[in-house]
Write a protein that binds this DNA or RNA. Structure first.
Lengths: 339, 339
DNA sequence: AATTTTGCATTAATCGTTTTCTCATCTAGT
DNA sequence: ACTAGATGAGAAAACGATTAATGCAAAATT
């Protein structure tokens, strides 16, 4: 490993000068600086991250918290897509992403402890259970942090326009002639509330009565439960003609329930998803769904976090960004049959 | 931030003693050690990763290289599933995962440089293009490394039993009565060769002639190309009755082609995928596919890498692990129609 | 009782950087 | 020509931890 010392020796200068030259700091002559930088390059010098971190208290490491009930957050298409975009933007700025966990050096610790141990410059959080006490602890700790789909006071966040997303879905269904529109939501959470708000609001706006039996609470990404709830909806005396699913993936359960009930999508019943996952475009029938702009969400998160890291001292109020959604027309919504 | 020094002061001992006590090293009395550990805990002491790394040359960081043509490796279900399992195992042993990239501190560097800069203890590689010169450079560098689906000389690796996977698929199709079995493979690569080997070998073993026109080369995860190639197969004078797809995802393209040709799966044509991705179980028709044991693959990779890190000096020959695959019976294979 | 061994604790060096302070030299202003 | 200021370079301290070397007292050996 080649160090500043090696370069210094070769150039016949002090390590201090080498450091300054390499970091383009004043206090070293243009000539010398050039020579130093050249030999540094020729020797294949690379700074030592640990030493730099120790001295400067900057690691250029961003912790990534992607957890769900089963701690397999990496398997969530939506979150991973956002992360992918976030990653791209952060790497551009020289940051590294580290997956956070609760085990360091064979001991079990908290997220906050992991964050402090590794001296992370910031944290990216996207997961389901935002009420986890460990997360609250982390949020209180003062490390720059950005969250997806939830806002902690004092921290920036990014989220889709969930209200509008469901509004768009309901309006679209209505335009196609539906009035018996059911909504299976995800588990109670900020996002879920917003979506329900959109559902109820739009129905009222359209003069459609809000029927309690048309609203069911499932869980995000829960195929099985969503399938069951869909089956329940289908057995209502007056079943809905269109169902909004918690998300695309859970919606697969809904589609299965409809199929097993001997009904067809969309002829007998229309379905609308949420997320707009990549692979959904390839399955049949192509799901009509509310698209969340994962690329934009990830980028926005990166921007906010970067700003936060730079202005650590200045207590600018934490900004939140709402990202517009759009409706992807698939093949799962057609005018309801006359019944 | 509380340091060893702080603890030392509070306990009236030297930092050396504190360090030893905390790391359960000999050379400090049981009494003192206990007291030191207690006050350390009460003060909320956490070691400083940077300082430890600097001194010990161990970071407990594992680099993760998940790249493909579009550098969106995170979006590959299969690889991410393996990673998820790998992650779990590595975290148990106190390692952190860091996503590798080519930008550090706003400069563009190579993977190898990133690896050295961050002083990674090991690297996990799973991607498509194993001939990337940067990867070769990394492989030559001596950092412990484990690869998925490819073996670099001198490094351990893990891969599914690809030969047997396709053999199982072909045998299954044959059992169902198929003899006109086509194979659309992924792009040329070690894995692909193995699969072709299984295809050709099993056909011969079953006494089925190997027909050149039944073999097409697509690319993994390429829905569009696979769709086109499937369409080509369907227009053959004597089209196949069963098609093996490069993988489940690309297989969606195949299904689409068949649908658009006005044919039905499986009544008119049978289809077999590869991977056994989670969500495939929920779409209709449920794809019959060769399941790769992602959990086992990830675990095996972790085991091999850990061993490699521990025995860095001892030049034990790099071990490779072949993980068995299994066939998941879905709904896409039935006996061929009489024609 | 003298000497060796053992056990416990400290001192100090070191890892590779960054950064402040000091010093010498050179330029410029009067 | 003499001083004030600028400039280039180096010395040294620090970041927080580990660890080899060392010292010293008590215990064990002969």
């Amino acid at each position: 490993m080649v160090t500043l010392k090696d370069i210094a020796k070769k150039c016949g200068v002090s390590v201090a000068s080498v450091s300054k030259a390499i970091n383009h700091m004043p206090g070293v002559g243009a000539q010398t600086a050039k020579k130093i930088r050249e030999t540094a390059k020729s020797m294949g010098y690379l700074p030592n991250a640990a030493a730099q971190a120790l001295k400067t208290n900057r690691t250029f490491i961003i912790g990534v918290l992607l957890e769900d009930d089963d701690s397999h957050g990496l398997l969530h298409q939506f979150f991973v897509s956002v992360l992918d975009s976030f990653k791209f933007k952060m790497e551009e700025q020289g940051y590294d992403l580290m997956l956070m966990n609760r085990t360091v050096g064979k001991r079990t610790i908290s997220y906050l402890e992991h964050c402090r141990y590794s001296n992370m410059d910031g944290v990216f959080v996207a997961c389901i259970d935002f009420s986890d006490p460990e997360l609250l602890e982390l949020a209180d700790a003062g490390t720059p942090m950005v969250t997806i789909d939830h806002t902690y006071p004092g921290h920036p966040s990014v989220y889709s326009d969930n209200v509008d997303g469901i509004r768009k879905a309901v309006r679209y269904a209505h335009e196609k002639g539906h009035t018996r529109i059911a909504f299976i939501s995800g588990a109670p959470a900020g996002v879920t509330n917003k979506r329900y708000e959109g559902y109820e609001g739009m129905l009222k706006e359209l003069g459609i009565p809000v029927r309690e039996e048309y609203y069911k609470v499932s869980r995000y990404r829960d195929v099985k439960l969503t399938k069951e709830l869909t089956a329940e909806l289908l057995t209502l005396p007056e079943p809905p003609t269109c169902i909004l699913m918690p998300d695309d993936y859970a919606g697969l359960g809904g589609l299965a329930a409809i199929r097993e009930a001997g009904l067809r999508v969309p002829e007998d019943i229309s379905v609308i998803g949420f997320d707009g996952l990549e692979y959904m475009a390839h399955i049949s029938p192509r799901l009509t769904t509310v698209y969340q702009d994962v690329k934009r969400i990830g980028e926005a998160a990166a921007e906010l976090l970067l700003k936060r890291i730079d202005n650590k001292e200045k207590d600018t109020p934490a900004k939140s960004i709402k990202v517009p959604v759009s409706l992807i027309e698939g093949e799962t919504v057609v005018p309801p049959q006359k019944s």
